[in-house]
Simulated scan of single mutants.
Amino acid sequence: MPIVTIQQFPRSVEQKRELARRITQAFAEVYGAEEASVQVFFSEVEGENWAKGGVMGCDRPADPKA
């Protein structure tokens, strides 16, 4: 049973739904896994709970690609 954990900044449920669908398809195609056995966990991290280069995420400028 494949389990995929994704750590990311908050995204819309529509984006997560599409990503979960595509990841599930990839495991089914590449590993021959049953789609029903693929689990995808989203762990969303707010800017006040991470830092990069010593700067808290909430203090960094917004990423226009996010």
Rank of each mutant, 00 (worst) to 15 (best):
residue 1 M to L: 09
residue 1 M to F: 09
residue 1 M to N: 08
residue 2 P to D: 10
residue 2 P to C: 12
residue 3 I to G: 02
residue 3 I to T: 14
residue 4 V to I: 15
residue 4 V to M: 09
residue 5 T to K: 15
residue 5 T to A: 07
residue 5 T to C: 02
residue 6 I to Y: 06
residue 7 Q to C: 04
residue 8 Q to K: 05
residue 8 Q to D: 08
residue 8 Q to N: 10
residue 9 F to W: 08
residue 9 F to T: 06
residue 10 P to I: 06
residue 10 P to S: 08
residue 10 P to L: 11
residue 11 R to P: 06
residue 11 R to Q: 15
residue 12 S to Q: 05
residue 13 V to F: 01
residue 13 V to C: 01
residue 14 E to L: 08
residue 15 Q to C: 00
residue 15 Q to T: 08
residue 16 K to F: 00
residue 16 K to V: 00
residue 16 K to I: 02
residue 16 K to R: 13
residue 17 R to F: 00
residue 17 R to V: 01
residue 18 E to I: 00
residue 19 L to T: 14
residue 20 A to R: 04
residue 20 A to Q: 07
residue 20 A to Y: 03
residue 21 R to H: 06
residue 21 R to N: 06
residue 22 R to I: 01
residue 22 R to H: 09
residue 23 I to H: 05
residue 23 I to Q: 02
residue 23 I to E: 10
residue 24 T to Q: 06
residue 24 T to C: 12
residue 25 Q to I: 10
residue 25 Q to Y: 06
residue 25 Q to S: 15
residue 26 A to K: 04
residue 28 A to G: 13
residue 29 E to P: 02
residue 31 Y to V: 01
residue 31 Y to E: 05
residue 31 Y to G: 11
residue 31 Y to P: 00
residue 32 G to E: 04
residue 32 G to I: 02
residue 33 A to H: 01
residue 34 E to T: 05
residue 34 E to W: 01
residue 34 E to Q: 15
residue 35 E to P: 14
residue 36 A to D: 11
residue 37 S to R: 10
residue 37 S to H: 12
residue 39 Q to M: 08
residue 39 Q to P: 01
residue 40 V to E: 05
residue 40 V to T: 11
residue 40 V to Q: 07
residue 41 F to T: 12
residue 41 F to E: 03
residue 41 F to W: 08
residue 42 F to Q: 02
residue 42 F to Y: 12
residue 44 E to K: 03
residue 44 E to S: 05
residue 44 E to F: 07
residue 45 V to L: 09
residue 45 V to E: 02
residue 46 E to V: 04
residue 46 E to W: 04
residue 46 E to C: 06
residue 48 E to Q: 12
residue 49 N to T: 09
residue 49 N to L: 11
residue 49 N to F: 13
residue 49 N to Q: 12
residue 50 W to D: 10
residue 50 W to Y: 15
residue 50 W to K: 04
residue 50 W to Q: 05
residue 50 W to N: 08
residue 51 A to I: 05
residue 51 A to Y: 03
residue 52 K to F: 11
residue 53 G to F: 01
residue 53 G to I: 02
residue 54 G to N: 09
residue 54 G to V: 04
residue 55 V to H: 02
residue 55 V to K: 12
residue 56 M to A: 15
residue 56 M to E: 14
residue 56 M to H: 07
residue 56 M to F: 12
residue 57 G to D: 12
residue 57 G to R: 04
residue 57 G to W: 03
residue 58 C to N: 14
residue 59 D to M: 08
residue 59 D to E: 15
residue 59 D to Q: 13
residue 59 D to S: 13
residue 60 R to P: 04
residue 61 P to L: 05
residue 61 P to E: 14
residue 61 P to D: 10
residue 62 A to T: 12
residue 63 D to P: 00
residue 63 D to G: 00
residue 64 P to Q: 09
residue 64 P to G: 03
residue 64 P to N: 05
residue 64 P to C: 04
residue 65 K to D: 14
residue 66 A to N: 13
residue 66 A to E: 10
